[in-house]
Design a protein around this nucleic acid. Sequence first.
DNA 1: ATATTGTGAGCGAACATTCACACACATATA
DNA 2: TATATGTGTGTGAATGTTCGCTCACAATAT
Lengths: 194, 194
Amino acid sequence: MKNYTKRQKEIILAAIDLIAKNGIQELTIKKLSQKIGVVESALYRHFPKKQDILLGILAVFRENKEAILQAVQAESDVPLEQLRALFIKRFKYFSEHPAVASVIFAEDLFRNDSRLSQMVYEIMKTNQAAIIHLVENGQKRDDIRKDLPATQIAFILASALRLIVTQWRLAEYRFDLNEEGKKIWETLERMVKN
Amino acid sequence: MKNYTKRQKEIILAAIDLIAKNGIQELTIKKLSQKIGVVESALYRHFPKKQDILLGILAVFRENKEAILQAVQAESDVPLEQLRALFIKRFKYFSEHPAVASVIFAEDLFRNDSRLSQMVYEIMKTNQAAIIHLVENGQKRDDIRKDLPATQIAFILASALRLIVTQWRLAEYRFDLNEEGKKIWETLERMVKN
DNA sequence: ATATTGTGAGCGAACATTCACACACATATA
DNA sequence: TATATGTGTGTGAATGTTCGCTCACAATAT
């Protein structure tokens, strides 16, 4: 986000908001410019193509994932606690930024452009690698059971996180994500703990 | 699908194929009619609105889920084996019909229309209820651990299935879904087995 | 001969993008 | 200090394309 001007950030956040409302087809230059309060062509002073706005959205996601990961590692050095913190923090962030949650797991939005889908894939892989690493550390400390491959455990953790957020969004945010998320984490923890 | 004519089914399958290729924005009346081999307006002989084609797609999904569920229950009466069969059959079906896999978990495609999103929600809930029921039966027989709520176990099972299919699609079907799916199931089984 | 299915032209709306132009403000030059 | 030039940001009109959909008419099948 350091590479983006104030105005560009403003546009990116507005774009996320729009997409959250009704999917990617809600994001048109016209609607976006109206939300910002300028005329359509003014947006092209800040982004050469609409696509570049979408790239900006992905940059927000990546930055957020990295920030949470660092915070988690600073907070504790017990892998299982780090994993819990990772879950809790993610839910907290999504609760506070539903629009972001709305878009972050909707990979399909970016499927039609190779630059975009490549970036999605990269973010996903980085994130997964980080979780795998935490699980492996947990296994080394004998906190997490070793009879299951770390990659698979990490996969299952990530998949549950993802689905609960998806359902929360489909339910139009009608249940408390923090609460349900915590419950799911506790079940998962009991499944993988030694 | 009993309510649909031959031609309508043809159109629905072609529509699924198109969406699989590059997302929902690939599904236009023009492209669809070209794929079928008629002119655009001919489609309106079979469906009054584009939306109704999407409803047809959802009907295919629902029918498929119900069929698999019945087959699974006929095959065995041991819940854990039924669950395994459910997983394996789903992966097999998706392997053989990648286009369907491409669309079935992309709920966002239908977000902008209330009729569609309601149907998506209904299919999802029915499916989840069926899995919960199987898990509860497994717990009654002491095959599945009882210290975890059945709803949560079912949720975690479903989430893993969903994510592996999603990743398979994002990886452009480059890995063997049956194989990877089986591995994930085995890990899940070990997590929940008594 | 009646019902079903397909054709071709065309409609208005929405879309992303481009263009000439305007105005405020900062920086450089005389 | 006064003037000139550059930069950032906005406006309004216009472009070409694509979209879903309609309609009068024609071919085909039962």
